[in-house]
Amino acid sequence: MAPTLLLAALLAAPATPATPLVSNGPTGSDSVTVSVAVPPVLGLAKSARRQRIGYLPRHVVLQTGGGVGMLSVGGGLSFAHRRLDLDALVGYVPARHAGTALTIASVKVKYAPWELPLGSSRLAFTPLAVGVYGSYTFGLRNTGEEGQYPDDYYWWSRTTRVGPVLGSSLSYALPDAPSGRARRLTGYYELATNDLYAISYYLNRRALSLPDITTLALGLKLEF
């Protein structure tokens, strides 16, 4: 229910107007420009291309799980024809689930080489996305005070986690924004683990299985 409401809120949010096209034409009425009519045209073409490169599909995300929050919200940009996503999220875990209330800041890079349009529908399936994430947790109770432990007493970070992610997604094309930007709603899942789980698995491949160290994230991404 809560995710549905949040999604509705996200959809209702006004789309940010696209960056206005920067005029590259002559600014004055100087007639000298007439004698160099060709270069400005080239300049315009170059500028248009720069505009297109500068047009970065951007999105907001809403996620649960994946070790980075009971509920995480964030935003990101897509690069390389939407194959590469860079996301930043802030997640929250209430005290009843973790002992203290946690705030988790995370960044994630995901690469999805294929996107398969599903017939003539507005749906598209991304079968595989791979990536890495890093997170920093605020609010843990015992991370060590100054002088509490001798050096290297615990060799690992209690606050920073890194790990691989792997997932799929299904996108639905929404009507374009008034600015002409393509809008899309994507539902995704991600399987992930973290450095500490991975070490535990690596050292105990008989007793531990990959499902033992796997976490699941479910999320929504709105490109606008």
């Binding site: 799980g65 994946g66 070790g67 980075v68 929050g69 002992g99 947790t137 994230a217 479910l218």
Partner: peptide
């Protein structure tokens, strides 16, 4: 599986 944090103790 839907782990909120490695420090999530559910």
């Amino acid at each position: 599986l839907v782990e909120f944090s490695p420090n999530d103790h559910r």
